[in-house]
């Protein structure tokens, strides 16, 4: 066992394209971030930038203030609820229908035309139409977010299932596996890496649509908060709201990646696209 263990460890210490190890990659990217922030801060201190562009330190201060006052928590709660509800509904349906379309010609033909017609519509344009029916409510916001989150998950899950090596399915047929077993034990795991790429895009789009739907109509949440701060000329609170949205996105993405790694089993360690 020790041999295979050390082999796995060796493979995990894979090098990036430019020959930097993982630790060094992390160091480089954080150094770059610090550099960008320092230059930005320096420019605001010198006074080259217009007054309405705040420096990172001032934004951080405004962020802390917004958090202390309790406004941030009050805004983040409803926003996260909308973004994540819409994301879960949209991406779950997207992955399921995508996998079905990937394995079944009938499903693919059934969905394809509808999908290609509706995909290019900016989903925020549907918001007023949905509001006619449901009003500017959480229901309509979640629905718009779910519709937007559907497409990347659907398309990537479908392409993941379509891209499965046919010989892998032959192995299952050779063993006499039923269609149902083949779907759940071969197609789903084989298509999963690609499907998860779609799910991550869906997550990011959910946050975009979260802000967009909160800006319109009488709403609460981070989007509404930063729009209100803009109207009141409170730019510090506005920037703080933007930072809060970014943080929500980063944290959700990190959680999703952790979940994906657990679902992927030991596959990440070996980097095995083909067995």
């Amino acid at each position: 066992m020790s041999t295979s263990g050390s082999m796995a460890a060796q493979l995990m210490r894979r090098q990036s394209l430019l020959g930097a190890s993982r630790e060094r990659t992390w160091l480089i990217s954080s150094l770059f971030t610090v550099l960008v922030l320092a230059v930005w801060e320096a420019l605001t201190m010198v006074g080259v930038l217009p007054a309405y562009i705040y420096g990172p330190i001032e934004i951080a201060r405004a962020f802390v203030e917004l958090a202390r006052g309790g406004d941030l928590a009050a805004q983040t709660g409803p926003s996260l609820y909308r973004a994540l509800s819409g994301f879960f509904i949209g991406s779950a349906i997207g992955v399921m229908l995508g996998l079905l379309a990937g394995v079944s010609r009938v499903f693919r033909d059934l969905f394809d035309l509808t999908q290609s017609f509706t995909h290019p519509i900016p989903k925020i344009a549907l918001f007023p139409a949905i509001a006619v029916l449901l009003g500017f409510t959480d229901k309509s916001r979640i629905l718009v977010i779910a519709i937007s989150a559907f497409y990347p998950s659907y398309l990537n899950a479908m392409n993941g299932a379509l891209g499965i090596n046919a010989r892998l399915l032959w192995v299952a047929r050779n063993a006499g596996a039923s269609k149902l077993r083949t779907f759940f034990q071969v197609v789903v795991p084989a298509a999963m890496p690609r499907a998860l790429v779609g799910v991550r895009i869906s997550l990011m789009i959910s946050f975009v649509l979260m802000v967009a739907t909160e800006v319109v109509g009488h709403s609460n949440g981070l989007g509404a908060g930063l729009m209100e701060a803009y109207r009141d000329g409170e730019y510090g609170a506005m920037y703080a709201g933007i930072v809060a949205v970014a943080l929500c996105g980063v944290v959700s993405n990190a959680v999703l990646q952790r979940v994906a790694r657990v679902l992927g089993g030991g596959r990440d360690a070996g980097g095995a696209g083909h067995g």
């Binding site: 795991p189 999963m192 992927g264 083909h274």
Partner: peptide
Amino acid sequence: GPGRDRGMVFQEAMLFPW
């Protein structure tokens, strides 16, 4: 059709990587 009495082995191993 395919059957368990005839086992195929391909040029690439076609193991399930997961």
